[in-house]
């Protein structure tokens, strides 16, 4: 079966930032996410470091990514298809299989590696 490809990762997809500005997905930069979180209220950007990448035993075709998230270094695990792009701080779009990402989305990616720090979002803690 064909994988379900969220079309927001297709090259050329129009993304609305929290500032109202529109950008193509391939033109996004780290600052766009940081600024958007700042003005959105209630959301904040976390730094999520990739600490392990494995192929899933339970769900063939998926990869299991282990992250340590935020200042508390909480451990979070997610299963994703290898073509799923993540935005790495200072580097841009990255996936476990840049070849598949290019095939399916047309989006140019770096190779996601252990040690990469990805942009993730979480709820802002009340003061």
């Amino acid at each position: 079966p064909a994988p379900s490809n969220p079309s927001h990762f297709m090259k050329g997809a129009i993304i609305q930032l929290a500032t109202g500005e529109l950008k193509r997905v391939e033109d996004l930069q780290t600052q766009d996410f940081v600024r958007s979180a700042e003005v959105s209220g209630g959301l904040k950007i976390d730094s999520s470091m990739v600490v392990d990448i494995r192929t899933s035993q339970q769900r063939p075709g998926l990869v299991v990514l282990h992250f340590t998230v935020g200042e508390q270094q909480s451990k979070v695990t997610i299963d994703v298809p290898p073509e799923h792009p993540f935005f790495v701080f200072g580097q841009g779009w990255s996936s476990c299989s840049p070849e598949r990402t290019a095939q399916l989305y047309g989006l140019a990616c770096h190779h996601l590696q252990v040690g990469d720090v990805c942009v993730s979002i979480t709820l802002q803690q009340p003061p």
């Binding site: 129009i14 529109l22 959105s40 999520s48 998230v69 990805c118 942009v119 979002i121």
Partner: peptide, 19 residues
């Protein structure tokens, strides 16, 4: 042309709080 919100592109990773 569809327009997607910025927050749909990055994962929501909620750390599990333990206090």
């Amino acid at each position: 042309v569809p327009v997607f919100p910025w927050h749909s592109l990055v994962p929501f990773l909620a750390p599990t709080q333990s206090d």
